[in-house]
Design a protein around this nucleic acid. Structure first.
Ligand code: MN
Ligand code: MN
Ligand code: MN
Ligand code: MN
Lengths: 140, 140
DNA sequence: TATCATTTGTAGCGAGTGCTACAATTCTGC
DNA sequence: GCAGAATTGTAGCACTCGCTACAAATGATA
C-alpha cells in the first residue's frame, strides 16, 4: 500500500524523511503566507527559511516540476491542489507535534524550534500516541 | 556560551542539526560495533547505514579530518577520545528518546525507526522533559 | 515618463551524500 | 606460497542545497 522503500533500515527511513522535508516545509510556508497576507513571494520564503533568494528560486522551480507549486517569472508563488493537500497534512502534523511538546512541558521557544525538525520523523503510530497524550492532558 | 549560530530561525537550527547528524550516527555505530564485536570495518558501517562502502569511506575520511576517528588504509575504524565522547553523548540521548517513545506507548519497531531521526532535533529542554516523563511512568 | 529601489533570475562556485565501475589490498584455504 | 574471495580505495557521475556576483524585470516615486 505504502511506498516500496527500504523502511526496514532506520537510517534509510531518515533519509527518505529528509528527502520529503523541503517540499513539506515550503508548501506549509506558502500556505501560511498566502492565508496571512494574500500572497507569497520568493523573498518571503527566503526570509522565513533563513536562506538566500537564489536557494528559494531553485527549490521553487523543482517543486513546480513536482506539481506542488505554480509560478510565472517575477510573480508570486501559489500552491496547486496537490500542494494544498500536502500543506494541509504537513500543518496538521506540525501542530500535533508542537502541541504535544507544549503539553509535555517544553517551553514555547524550544518547542517551536524542535518541532520544525522532529515533525518529519514522526510516523503514524507515534503521531497517534502524541494526539492521545494531548487529549489526556487537556481533558484533565 | 553556546555556539553563535543562527538559532533564532527554527529552520536554521534544523540545518545545523542535520550538519551534525552524520558524525553522531557514525561514531555511535562505530562505538556499538566495537563493543559488540571487537572491531568496526567499513563494510559493517555500510551494512548498518544501508549505503555503499564508497559512501562510508568518504565519510570516514572526513570524520578522521575532524578528529573523531582514526584509520589506516584497509584497516578497521577506531574512535579517538573526542569521538568516544561524542558517541557516549549521542548514545545517551538516543536511549532517552527511545525509552521516551516506548513509555508513550509507541510500538518497538516504530519507536526505533522514529528515534533515529528525532534524536538529532531534541534540544536540552525537550530532552529533560522526556527524561522526567520516563521517570514518572516507571516510578508508578 | 524617467529614475531608482526592490525583487527575481542566472551563472558559477563549494560541500555533502548517494551511486556504479574498476583497481588495489588483504584475507582464506588449499 | 598462491588463487580466488572479500574488503577497501579511487574515479567519475548525479542530485540537493548553501553562497556571491551580476543581470533583468518589476514597482514606486518624483
Ligand atoms: Mn519542518
Ligand atoms: Mn540518528
Ligand atoms: Mn542514533
Ligand atoms: Mn532530520
Amino acid at each position: 500500500m505504502s511506498e516500496p522503500v527500504k523502511r526496514n533500515n532506520p537510517f534509510a527511513k531518515v533519509r527518505a524523511d529528509h528527502a520529503a522535508e523541503t517540499a513539506e516545509d515550503y508548501v506549509e510556508a506558502v500556505s501560511d503566507m498566502v492565508h496571512r497576507t494574500g500572497e507569497c513571494r520568493v523573498r518571503d520564503l527566503a526570509k522565513i527559511m533563513g536562506v538566500s533568494h537564489v536557494t528559494v528560486t531553485r527549490i521553487v522551480t523543482r517543486l513546480q516540476e513536482q506539481g506542488l507549486i505554480e509560478t510565472e517569472p517575477y510573480r508570486p508563488v501559489r500552491l496547486t491542489s496537490s500542494g494544498e493537500k500536502l500543506a494541509a497534512n504537513s500543518r496538521q502534523r506540525h501542530e500535533i507535534v508542537l502541541q504535544f511538546l507544549l503539553a509535555l512541558g517544553v517551553p514555547q521557544d524550544d518547542a517551536e524550534r524542535d518541532t520544525e525538525g522532529i515533525e518529519h520523523h514522526v510516523g503514524q503510530a507515534t503521531l497517534d500516541r502524541m494526539a492521545a497524550f494531548i487529549r489526556e492532558r487537556s481533558g484533565d
